[in-house]
Design a protein around this nucleic acid. Sequence first.
DNA 1: AATGAATGAGGATTCATTCAT
DNA 2: TATGAATGAATCCTCATTCAT
Lengths: 213, 213, 213, 213
Amino acid sequence: MSPADFTKRQLEIIDSAIELIAERGIQSLTIKNLARRVGVTEGALYRHFRSKQEILLAILAVFGHSNAEVFQRIREQEASPLKQLERVFLDHFEQFEKKPALAAVIFSEEIFQNDSLLADTMIQVVQNSLDEVQKIVEAGQKLGEIRSDVPGEQLALVLLGSLRFQVVRWHLSGYGFSLRTAGARLWQTLRSMVVLDEANTQPNEIGQKALSL
Amino acid sequence: MSPADFTKRQLEIIDSAIELIAERGIQSLTIKNLARRVGVTEGALYRHFRSKQEILLAILAVFGHSNAEVFQRIREQEASPLKQLERVFLDHFEQFEKKPALAAVIFSEEIFQNDSLLADTMIQVVQNSLDEVQKIVEAGQKLGEIRSDVPGEQLALVLLGSLRFQVVRWHLSGYGFSLRTAGARLWQTLRSMVVLDEANTQPNEIGQKALSL
Amino acid sequence: MSPADFTKRQLEIIDSAIELIAERGIQSLTIKNLARRVGVTEGALYRHFRSKQEILLAILAVFGHSNAEVFQRIREQEASPLKQLERVFLDHFEQFEKKPALAAVIFSEEIFQNDSLLADTMIQVVQNSLDEVQKIVEAGQKLGEIRSDVPGEQLALVLLGSLRFQVVRWHLSGYGFSLRTAGARLWQTLRSMVVLDEANTQPNEIGQKALSL
Amino acid sequence: MSPADFTKRQLEIIDSAIELIAERGIQSLTIKNLARRVGVTEGALYRHFRSKQEILLAILAVFGHSNAEVFQRIREQEASPLKQLERVFLDHFEQFEKKPALAAVIFSEEIFQNDSLLADTMIQVVQNSLDEVQKIVEAGQKLGEIRSDVPGEQLALVLLGSLRFQVVRWHLSGYGFSLRTAGARLWQTLRSMVVLDEANTQPNEIGQKALSL
DNA sequence: AATGAATGAGGATTCATTCAT
DNA sequence: TATGAATGAATCCTCATTCAT
């Protein structure tokens, strides 16, 4: 389900829900709190969603869509795979920093676990990102831009795992540091680790290194 | 607080709690469910822990201790940093596979978020692991075994982030694959990515690579 | 807060609460008991009051208002201070006899003690009555109707203390005597004690006294 | 039952209970709190009292005995009735100020209300004090020291009611003023109100008054 | 005498959901 | 569409009491 399928009111509710999660955790995403934030009665929410589960599904849909959008935008740019990966990272971090609420959804895996429909949806969202990253990585491997001594699927795991961990830490710290800055640094690290031969891709740094030796 | 400081009954309760989290998520770690699993009345739990928060703290203590133990064991072996990192990975995965319940705690960040004492404890547990990994990495960097073109702190982030992501996926999949096997594969990947020069550390693979090129 | 500020349902709940206190003591004013008496679920009460404390405050508000009303009515009558005091007594006793539940609130000082907001409100209610009585007394003293050899504040203390004690005893006795009758008798006693010179105000009794000397 | 009939341990428990009531109200007189204060296990209390009710009865017994003692002491002094009344007041206030805990029992009427045995005992304690005061008053009336135009029973009501009210206010204020001082003042007031003719009973003060006029 | 562990009932409060209006 | 009131189940926690040791 794409956000376009939601009514204006529904999107309003989803937004409020995500805000709520971001600010006070999924635990405080109750119908009462949500209704108060939206500015309507609790009962009114049930005009727009049949149950709380449907709201959670909607949140996942929006989260998944937001993720997919990042990849969509990047695919359209037709940059080199490495540049694309860079964008994946920087765009994700930027998006999270702009809307910290979305980052919180990552934490909510737990909630979604109880309900198998929610769990499956969640897994799918994660897997989708993994697949997208893997595709880019494999394109880069084909072009010799990215190391081929490890399977693309594994590289995707490392890349996304690192990304998520950074976001998690940022969230746990109470947004205590600039995710964008920390993310950029992390990308530099990962970049160095996934390219096969620095000489080909970052001639400048090689020069620095030669000097520093 | 070390697990040794807990009474037998307390450890029993903690174990039941971790099981509960593992099987049905933190959401279902209620006093009633916990009491039922332990086989006592709800009130009885309060003779052993003053509050639910104390139980959660105890779980974190056990989790942190279990983590620390892995590092402790490894430090004692005095293997090369790279070998130590390998052990960190394999031992963690092994421990999680033996006690999947513990893996579930990783998910519970959310719950711990509401309560600032719990959140701080959680952050500390995570940070502790990060520090341990970073120390090993930096030792490896000094010995030239591990690449020095990226800060050790960043490498630690990548390593732990990947590890956690794998565990998360394993858990979300309903333990649908062998964590040990998948973990070993992930380690091979990470290993390749953190060593500076394949020639020195994995001569065999170099040969393969030479061929594959 | 005046009773007029409460909704119909709130007043219903307050009334039930006061009844409960009157019949079985404050100890039995539990949410469950209260809900049962009102004829709704426990949760339903929380739509009308945010907490039990709020209910207790509401009771005090009603009690305070009921007290204030007595004084209000009396002030409007513009009778002589002594007549006003008489009315204070008789009206209070009458009101308590009509609504014995209210009398029980006097006992509940204890409950209100734990919560400082409640305690303060309670003290204020008591102090308010004291102030009102004192004002009347001092007016009487100015007119020479009431003895001036003791401070008005002290007389107020004696008057209200006696009144309360009578009510307490009536309540403890299980409403085993007519409060109105006993109250009237008590007033006669107090009346004799606060007037300065019997000759001016109760010429009939003077005759008796002359004899008895 | 006199305090002499209690074992040392029992008296210790009763004392702790009274302290508890004084400090935090009857609501916090739970077996758990009591046991903690005494320094034993909850179960241990049941070696000394069969139930909580028995403990409450014991408290009432001690309270009643303490009251009776005041009257006993006074009867033995064979002072004039008026002097005796003065002592009743001053001694009570002094005793309460020395052991504020006892004052708190006055508040606990509520608790005792639920249980009819406790309620009866409580009533009896109060009635006993009333009777004692009444006896003294009537002796004073016979001697012409105290006004005879109102029944002794009524005067007793006024005297004790005032005394209790003062104690209640002192307690509610958080012991915010000197009960002894306020009590002495209250007595002066009551004294003036119960004597028939100042000239006969307080010649000294008359002198003062003459001077002050 | 005292402990430590347990019980069962009940405490206040919050939850998602329903429904008449 | 929305409200306001209600429900029933669940939340964590405390109570007085019991009992084997």
